[in-house]
Design a protein around this nucleic acid. Structure first.
Lengths: 119, 119
DNA sequence: TCGGACCCTCACACACGTGTGAAGGTCGAT
DNA sequence: ATCGACCTTCACACGTGTGTGAGGGTCCGA
């Protein structure tokens, strides 16, 4: 599919899709006319990327964790110690983020419930 | 306490603490010499702020959800419909973020477990 | 009284994700 | 053949969180 359709289906602007490609988060074949040609899997991948960006992860980090998610156990072999260290660190950071978000979300839920009771 | 100590205890630079104040996320009394004077509760509050910032929430939103967390049911009364709508929307967004983070964190955990098995 | 550590404000600068617009190529339908 | 919708690259610009440094005040201990 071309960039416009991918944009429509993911909610990302074409500009952003090109940016993600520049950051090496996604890649595309090129038609004879130079147009990008994305395969179907890109839709989920872009959604994944946007979710992680929204959750505060920089593209630099997303680039490193994405391969562990899309592949089966294929890339397990070429895991350098540095990569593993990065993943462990990011795993911890994500857990911290989750904890913070859950705590605050639940507090908001509690507040909303209290507000509804007073009406 | 003064800004330096608060910075030390929260990991935020003095510059950032002044920025948070400018964004009306925290406030401080002023000594006769113009120095900011923070009370003890600021430590937790700043940690809260930094956690939410790291989780991708902008100061604008944090400013709106913070009051629901720190106060008891005190502010339940002055909840405008717009505020409630904002809170509901942010609650949903936070849930989405959490879901995304959990999914990806667990995938990373799975990958790390697989890597460890091959050694 | 001097030095150093701390505070103040102000302003410029950066990174990063994103928008926007210019200048131009491709392609399909009328 | 032309028009509109789509694509290309390039470049400038914005908002936001953060760093840094200038220029200056406060305060405490040697």
């Amino acid at each position: 599919m071309r960039i416009g359709e991918l944009a429509r289906r993911t909610g990302a602007s074409p500009r952003l899709l090109r940016y993600y490609e520049e950051q090496e988060l996604i890649s595309a074949d090129r038609g004879a006319n130079g147009y990008r040609d994305y395969d179907e899997a890109c839709v989920d991948r872009v959604r994944q990327i946007r979710g992680l960006l929204d959750a505060g992860l920089p593209t630099r980090v997303i680039k490193q964790i994405l391969p562990c998610l899309t592949t089966g156990a294929i890339h397990v072999a070429d895991a350098t110690p540095e990569t593993i260290a990065i993943l462990e660190r990011e795993h911890a950071r994500m857990s911290a983020r989750i904890e913070c978000l859950v705590r605050n979300r639940d507090a908001i839920a509690g507040y909303l419930a209290a507000v509804r009771l007073t009406r």
